[in-house]
Nucleic acid binder design. Sequence first.
RNA 1: GCCGACGUAGCUCAAUUGGCAGAGCAGCUGAUUUGUAAUCAGCAGGUUACCAGUUCAAGUCUGGUCGUCGGCUCCA
Length: 634
Amino acid sequence: MSFIKVTLEDGFEVSFPAGITCQEVLQELKGRNTGAIAALIDGRESDLTTRLDESCRLEFIDFDSPRGARIYRHTASHILAQAVKRLYPGARLGIGPAIDTGFYYDFEFDEPISADDLDRIEKEMNRIIAEDLPLRRLEPSRREIKKVFSKENEPYKLELIEELPEDEIISCYQQGDFIDLCAGPHLTSTGRVNAIKLTGLAGAYWRGDERNPMLQRIYGTAFPTQDQLKEHLHRLEEARKRDHRKLGRELDLFSFQEEGPGFPFFHYPGLIVLQELTQFWREEHHRAGYEEIKTPIILNRQLWENSGHWEHFRENMYFTRIDEQDYAVKPMNCPGAMLVYRTRMHSYRDFPRRIAEMGLVHRHELSGTLHGLMRVRSFTQDDAHIFLLPDQVEAEIKGIIDLVERFYHIFGFKYRVELSTRPEKAMGSTEQWEKATAILKRVLGDREIDYRVNQGEGAFYGPKIDFHLRDCLGREWQCSTIQLDFQMPEKFDLTYIGEDGQRHRPVVIHRVIYGAMERFFALLIEHYAGAFPAWLAPVQVVVIPITERHHGYGRDIYRRLAGRFRVSIDERNEKVGYKIREAQLKKIPYMLIVGDREEESRRVAVRSREDGDLGPFAVDDFVRRLQQELEEKR
RNA sequence: GCCGACGUAGCUCAAUUGGCAGAGCAGCUGAUUUGUAAUCAGCAGGUUACCAGUUCAAGUCUGGUCGUCGGCUCCA
């Protein structure tokens, strides 16, 4: 018998007979990671049942690692598919991957199922778990496997097989009488899955293409214990309390009306937050060398034909007629900025010229995509168009990334970066696109920023770097974006006079930092759970007189603060506890309680939203404290 | 736009099999003058999203429209 050398995670080397399975190694090493659900053989994800024929490095992964959780839930998705096939033998299988917080599987049913059917399916899944069916990996030939899926009437699986490279080994996993095309790895048996829950039913186009038939997608999640599952569901419920749509109503920030779906109404408290965000933005942009402009919302058809929007963006635009001429409501701010640029001659010495605009744009988004303030049909972009020389591009993009990071740092946002490349419906030559894309890649590389390439998702005029933030339920939304554009300068015949006295074409960078004020606001609401830091809070201080006889002193305090802060006074005929509770629910950062003690000592009792009663303060001391807090944007 | 679900007072939610639309909070009025998260009492509040239909009778059943929610697609 030959022996192999297995090197473990901690560098420990053990000798085993060749052909031993990962699981057997694990048993030999009892006590070292008993929660293992899969193995990494020389870094390759593998089943615990995989045999080791050669010396290798071996690690075990458990549920607590992200890959472990994915493997665990992927097995859960197979259990879902098996349950569905038992209850609906005619159902055709789509795909069934694990996702961040669970898994899904797509099916085509003869008769659509409804949400009520999920209970039945979940029960069947639990039955399959109780049966503790072992999962076996099979590597049949292409012919055999096609035969199996033809017999099972699985057209979608056959389609997937057709598209696998000729030389690739195709693997399947079998549990009981259920077999699925799958790269694996998987748990050793269905009984290893402990706590499952089906969480939703939705439509999903086959392979994400709206020209394909719509399948029914069942979402679920799975955990090693019922407690973990319960905790996960509880967390979800807590997260829902931060939902900006709920808090927006409760805090009177904004509303939506049936009279204008997707067009937000901002109420005074919400508008204050937007105004503060805008003011901060102005200060930062002034410092960073931007000028600000404002351009019209409605411009004529010829402009939009010239810019390419008429051809490339028409289905998202709103139109109107004025004096028997066609006009469009702007879906982007760029053409306006181009017109402003063209109003005078430029020298290369003017560059980079940074023209910013808080521009209100309107886009006709599909009704099904509207989502609170996150996706609306009219929104304000904190836009800027930067006109520069080709060799200034790299440094400028670095500067913009600095600005983005400065903003996100203030709010404490974590983000994810994507690079989007040439879409199908693009203007300009492939060479131009490649050149532009290479510049963006280089900047990201130099800054050591992790990013994902999003093939074919660029704007129609150029590639872009996008920054994504997460909402309370973990959904990602694009906010900042930096887009290179070699097309608009052509279309608008933009020029500058170079060192050589000749006319040249400038490059344009489009960029937004917040992205859309509406979306950023929504993310902020969820990020802070409605409890805005004092500099953003609609009301920063509320004066609470204890009884009517303290109203006079309360008003003195109110008047002393009113010029400097956003302050209100609660003179209602209620008990202090009631007024405090209400201020707390409105998430007002500071409450100043004034009664006999305070009036006599000419002080105020300060209560903070976060830390409760802070005790008596001289008014000037409180003013200094709050002023500093506002300056630091804490 | 597509798939599924939902739509009752400002908000959160009730209303057996189709049988007089109700509660809490908020609002208003009055009493109470209050010390760090809800004082008490009374009053008012509705074309049950909208439009048709079935029925002696529709919040409830059927069809359509609009909107919202969860996804898909799309995107700031």
